[in-house]
Nucleic acid binder design. Structure first.
Length: 200
DNA sequence: TTCCCGATTTACT
DNA sequence: GTAAATCGGGAAA
């Protein structure tokens, strides 16, 4: 499958990008180890107007500078001192929008993922959840601000899902964002097992 | 420089 | 169901 083109990421509508990323194929090649799978769950972070977004209010710091880049690069950061979270930056340069990749369904390099996660057997929890997904794919801060059209981490075209096959609900872990925590910016594929929280 | 806290996961009680 | 792990960013001083 071909990689997604730059203009896919540079659309200004981050919610639409988040929905379209469902069913696409995310891959990493770390130290020659290829692994990846189908994106099953995403969340949108809508730049300066979104209290849950790190760049809310136009906050541009060492960390958030990555989100101000043009769409088509990664934004990886450490959360709770333990977990690396993978985002895809979208929108035009200067507009700090991003899509958090929360879960994938593994298709390639499953042995590699099992080893990284110290698991013996495949189970949905291997890549269901943003911290778990990053660990399985070998993602850490070294992969921040990488070009998604290069050969270290990239996304290929795949399935497109219709609205009725997508569930839209509230984001997770952003209660501090007050009323914005209620925005239905989390999307996942209906019925898929590789989703970070129990379907409801 | 100090202090507080997080876009989470996992191991316990 | 609840809590501990763990470190770097960001705001205050």
């Amino acid at each position: 499958m071909p990689k997604l083109p730059l203009d896919f990421y540079q659309k200004e509508d981050v919610v639409s990008v988040a929905k379209q990323l469902l069913g696409k194929l995310l891959f990493t090649r770390i130290n020659g180890q290829l692994s990846g799978g189908i994106i099953t769950e995403t969340e949108a972070y809508d730049g300066i107007v979104d209290k849950a977004c790190h760049a809310y209010g136009g906050k541009n710091t060492n960390r958030t500078a990555t989100m101000f880049l043009g769409g088509g690069v990664t934004y990886v950061y450490l959360c709770y001192g333990i977990h690396h979270l993978l985002n895809v930056v979208s929108g035009k340069e200067g507009n700090p929008q991003a899509v958090l990749i929360r879960a994938i369904e593994p298709t390639v390099g499953i042995e590699t993922m099992l080893r990284r996660r110290k698991m013996e057997k495949i189970a949905p929890r291997i890549t269901a959840g943003p911290g778990a997904l990053s660990q399985a794919l070998g993602i850490d801060k070294q992969l921040n601000a990488k070009d998604l059209l290069a050969d270290e981490i990239w996304i290929e075209d795949g399935n497109a899902y219709k609205d009725e096959e997508i569930v839209a609900t509230t984001r997770i872990g952003v209660a501090y964002a007050q009323e914005h925590a209620l925005w239905p910016f989390r999307f996942y594929i209906k019925g898929n097992k590789y989703v970070s929280k129990p379907n409801s």
